[in-house]
Structure formats: structure tokens, C-alpha cells
Design a protein around this nucleic acid. Sequence first.
DNA 1: CTGAAACGAGAGCAGTGCTCTTGCTCGTGA
DNA 2: TCACGAGCAAGAGCACTGCTCTCGTTTCAG
Lengths: 234, 234
Amino acid sequence: MTTTQGARARARIEITAAIKDEARRQLAAEGAAKLSLRAVARELGMVSSALYRYFPSRDDLLTALIIDAYDSVGAAAERAHATAETAAPGDHLAHWTATCRAVRAWAVEHPHEYALIYGSPVPGYTAPQDTVVPASRVGLVLISVARAAYGDKGIALPPLPEVLRAEAERLAAGVAPDLPPPLVATLVSTWAQLFGLISFEVFGQFNNIVEDRDTFFANAAERLGRESGLLPKP
Amino acid sequence: MTTTQGARARARIEITAAIKDEARRQLAAEGAAKLSLRAVARELGMVSSALYRYFPSRDDLLTALIIDAYDSVGAAAERAHATAETAAPGDHLAHWTATCRAVRAWAVEHPHEYALIYGSPVPGYTAPQDTVVPASRVGLVLISVARAAYGDKGIALPPLPEVLRAEAERLAAGVAPDLPPPLVATLVSTWAQLFGLISFEVFGQFNNIVEDRDTFFANAAERLGRESGLLPKP
DNA sequence: CTGAAACGAGAGCAGTGCTCTTGCTCGTGA
DNA sequence: TCACGAGCAAGAGCACTGCTCTCGTTTCAG
């Protein structure tokens, strides 16, 4: 029933996937700016207008790629986290750094897809609602690490200044209501800072500056984790 | 002598500036992807081919805008730093946060120019050598804050792991040979993290998450400064 | 004063996103 | 069963892009 849904429907799925694959290939080769619908169609042996049956516009194709990219990096983070959890149960800092390293590895491996989701937003383009769930996957992993560490032994954080209390409470309510607001606020800024490290590397800001990027990042990620209170100070 | 260099040379300077101004206007209005040489020329009342007398290609125009943007944000940082220095001499943390806030304010005010320099690299991309000096201005301000704090009262930093020593020494040699390597390494990662905070805000990653971004950023910047050892722990 | 360099204008090329029309081919409801 | 509507590929075409080349004109320097 569900499998044999007609040759037509199946072909549509396959062709849609083929278009996305070819688009991803061009993305990896040339970057988002040079992704051309016509070139994709040409490579697939069809005419450009036929492609509009599957994606109503170039932006819609890009949106599909964005969603896939969020899912891809999110899955990588979840995988690394799960692996670290079974390899070193209870070592929250290890879970944290493993997750961070997986995200960075994905970014280095797929720089153009990374740029698509964490770089400059494309022209006049406002992210459709479909992207917000996939976009949150990495963040959810980071939160779950913090949650485990908090449930395990509590987390000592520097007290937030009074002016931030309202914001921290709103933040916590929307993101992780079961965690103390100061922790959530810290986590959000840590989250942004983590991607700052990755973006600077992927976008070339570290060129001629940082050489041994593996160890540099590993150290920075660990410090980030420490400062988020994932580990008692040594 | 130097002022009367012929009407032609003066015209060239003026027209070059006019082109960049109009390009900047289109950049702010539509983003880098939609910046069109023809539209710029049209708006300036000339024909598109004439524009190639001033910029040999679209990428060269973008490169000029990139350099200007680096200079603009660099100048903003230097200005803020100088002001803070005279307003609160010796308060290194205040100098730090003032600089950070100035950079963020510039970014929020010029999101597309910010995206141009700190977002995904646009063209086939190899950053021309002309950009590296302007690109370093913000970093130099941050370094000078750290240098002042270090010269003033020393800075206590957590010891770097042994694996990072070589990298930290190379880093320090290339960036600030007069500062202790661990401090320089910390500073570099702090630098990246600072721009992570700004990028997430400018690129919309904080949408529906962080509301009161002024205070959120101010707090995060201050913590970054503290963790870079700019202030003895309270 | 003259020749070379710089300049603006225009035509033209190859490419783009996107639309519209034209037939063909499925798959389903009568 | 089979006819009709929906889905599809193809092609022509529009308006736009970056960029090149040519052709007169203007300017400046030797």
C-alpha cells in the first residue's frame, strides 16, 4: 500500500532527490552564489523549465538544501553525542567536546553547506518555518548535555546580573524550562561562541593565523564546556 | 602640486567613490548577491561598460567594498577604544566591553556589509592581500586592550595544555610577540567567539530566542573579557 | 602640437531565473 | 473500460546579468 504508490509518485521522489543531489554537488563545487537551476537541469539531462515542476523557484531549492544541511549537521551531532555517552558514561565534558568536534568536523567537510546555514543569509530571504525544527537539533544536543550535567551534580555558575534576569527567564521558558535560567542564558551565548570558532575557521578568518586547528579547536571547545559549568574546576 | 593633479584624475577619484557609494546603497538594500553592476551604472546615469574602466570586474568592486567595510568597522572599534580609554583610564574591562559593543553596533547598523566581511565568502574566493591589513584592525584593538591589562597588573590564565604550546608560541610570534603565548591563544579564541555572538544576532540565529539583545550581548562580552583575564575575578 | 592613453557609448555574447504554451502520458473516477 | 483531468517534459521567449569589443571623443604629457 504505502510502498507501491504508483510509478509516478515514486519517480517524483527519485527525481526530487536527484535534483537535490546534483544541486548539492554544484554547491560543494562552486558555492551557493553560483548554483544555477539551468546547470542542474542540464546535468540531469532535462530542460530547465521541467525543474520547476519540482521546485517552484531557486530559493525553494535552496531552502530544501538548507533543511537537509541542518538535518545533516544535527544528525552528526546526535550521533557523536550518543557515541560519547556510551563510551564514557557520566563524563559530561567528554560528551560536550565530542559533540562540538563532530559539528566542527561536519562544517570543515561541508563548508558550503555550512555557509548556507550559518553564513550570511541569502538575498531578501526569510527562513521559512520548516527550517526551525531541523535548525534546532544541534542546540538541543548541547542542551541535553547541560541537562545531564545539571541533573548529575548541579552546576555552579557565576550569578547573572540583575538586568539579565528577565531575559534569562524568558530564554529558559522558551528553550529549556527545566533548567535554571542562568544556565540557559550561559548556554545560549556559549552556543553562539562555539559557532563563532567554527565559522572563523571555515570562512578563512584563521588563515595565516591558526595552524594546528584541530588542537586549537579542541582546547577552545573544552574551555567553553568548562565555563558553561559542565565540569567542576580542576 | 598634490592637490591639482588634473581634472581627469580628480574626476576618476570622484567617480570611483560615487560607484562605491551607489554599490553600498544597493548592498544595504538588497544584499551582496543582488548587487548588479548594470544597476549601479544605470543609477549613476552611465552605461555598464563605462563602469569597467573603474573596476575590472564585479568581484573587484566587491573587494573594494570589503576593504572599506573592514576599515569602517576597524575605525569604529578604534574610536570606541580611544573614547573609553580617556573616559575610564586603567579600567581595562571597560575598554574591552566598549570595543565589543562598538563592533556589534556597527554590525547591527550595517548588516550586509558585516555579512560581506564576516559571513560566507562570496565569489570563487581567494581574499586578496589588500584586505589583510584592514581586516586586522579590530583584532589589533582587542590585542592592545589585552596588552595594556597585561602590562598593568599581569594576567592570570589557566595553564594551556602541553599539546597547544607549540601552536600558542607560533600564534604569539605572528600576532603579538610581546605577550605570553597562552594569553595570545586565549585572545584568538575569544576573538572568534566574540564574532560568533555578533554573527548569530546579525544573521538571525537569535530570532525568537534572544529578545533583549543589548543586555544579552553586553553581558556576554563582559564575560568574554573576564575569561580573557582582563579583570581579576571579583 | 601631436600622439597615446583614458574615457563614454553602444552593440553583442553567453548565461541566468522564470513564464507560458504545446503536446504527451499517466492514473483515477464515472 | 475508458475518458478526462492532472502531471509532466520540452521549447520558445522575456528581462536581466557580467563581460568584451569596437568606435569616436576628450584629455593630458612629452
